[in-house]
């Protein structure tokens, strides 16, 4: 029988590993969330650009310029909102709702 007594501090060697793994998990989760949010935002932006073709304007360049102005403001907002809203994933839900509404608007006949 070993004379050394267990003090209950045996977990001290696995502490840094657990911390490291937890940190890795956090970074992975954040990166995944960012990738999802970016993908949703870019799909939304693309659909908006497609939607601008239906605008009743003569000049096609004017339409794309208008679309560019809208998406340059919207994409960073969507990315930030999607990344910030973690409680109940409301950020992701907001992104999906916006994307779905734009998709619906481009599918429905004008």
């Amino acid at each position: 029988m070993s004379r050394t007594q267990k003090t209950g501090l045996a977990g001290s060697s696995s502490g840094p590993d657990a911390k490291k793994s937890q940190k890795r998990q956090t970074v992975l989760r954040r990166s995944g969330l960012l990738a999802c949010v970016c993908a949703l935002s870019f799909i939304t932006a693309h659909l908006i650009m497609v939607l601008t073709r239906l605008l009743p304007l003569e000049d096609a360049r004017l339409k794309t310029d208008l679309g560019g102005m809208v998406i340059a403001a919207l994409v960073p907002m969507l990315v930030l909102a999607g990344f910030a809203g973690r409680r109940h994933s409301w950020g992701l839900i907001l992104g999906v709702v916006v994307c779905a509404s734009i998709a619906l608007a481009s599918i429905l006949p004008s």
């Binding site: 870019f42 932006a45 693309h46 650009m49 497609v50 601008t52 073709r53 339409k63 794309t64 310029d65 679309g67 560019g68 102005m69 998406i71 340059a72 403001a73």
Partner: peptide, 18 residues
């Protein structure tokens, strides 16, 4: 940043359905 991005946004996301 905003104006520079808006000017060339159409190059990154062209207005053509895929």
């Amino acid at each position: 940043g905003y104006t520079g991005t808006a000017i060339h946004a159409r190059v990154l996301l062209p207005a053509q359905p895929g």
